[in-house]
Design a protein around this nucleic acid. Sequence first.
DNA 1: AAGGTGACCGGCC
DNA 2: TGGCCGGCCACCT
Length: 110
Amino acid sequence: METTSDNFFERVYAVARRIPYGKVTSYGAIAKVLGSARSARMVGWAMNAAHNLEDVPAHRVVNRKGLLTGKHHFDGTNLMQQLLESEGIVVVDNQIIDFESVFWEPEMAV
DNA sequence: AAGGTGACCGGCC
DNA sequence: TGGCCGGCCACCT
C-alpha cells in the first residue's frame, strides 16, 4: 500500500539503507537528496519511525555537526555510540571524531 | 479541520 | 561549532 505519505518515508528509508558500513550521513544530506534540503526536520521525523525498523540503520544518521542527537531515542543511552564504534567510527562525548572522513554522501539510486 | 510538534539547517552575533 | 532565531514540511491528536 504505497500511499503518498508512506512514499516519503520510504525515500528516507531507501537512502538510509544505502549507507555503507562504517560510514555516516546527516539529515540535511538525505533531505537534500529527497529534494527538500530544508525539510531536514522531516527526515528526523521519518527516522523516528525508521529506527523502529531493523532495515534502517538510523544509528548511521547524525546531524551535520557529527553529533549523535538522536541517540537519546535509541533503546540504550549509548547504544547508538556503541554501534558506531563497532563499525570503526570513533565517537567521543556523543560526537563523531573525524566526521568528514566517515561522512558519506547519500544518493537516490546508482 | 486545525494546531502543535519535531532525531534539523542556515544565518547572524 | 558557541548560542539564538526563523523557516520549512509532513505526521499526530
